[in-house]
Amino acid sequence: MKLRIHVSRKPGVLDPEGRAVHHALEGLGFQGIEDVRIGRMVELEVADNTSDAAIEEMCRKLLANTVIENYRIEKVA
């Protein structure tokens, strides 16, 4: 089973990297950009019988820092 874990900063947590990219896009002349947030995507290939609880635990224990980050689990195939 292939998983994609999408990790993003929680709303309200400053994203300096996103802000720098925002400025760079504007520097290239792109207009109307309201906000840029940078996240991380982790692809996992796991055994088909891996439980949802185990996947959640992987996210909470390591893949995301839940103090500052949210995560979303996507089952690709």
């Binding site: 947590v13 400053l14 300096p16 990297e17 720098a20 820092n65 103090v67 500052i68």
Partner: peptide
């Protein structure tokens, strides 16, 4: 310890 250490605001 509580909290987290993120990228410096200035990058």
């Amino acid at each position: 310890l509580p909290g987290a250490l993120m990228r410096n605001e200035s990058m």
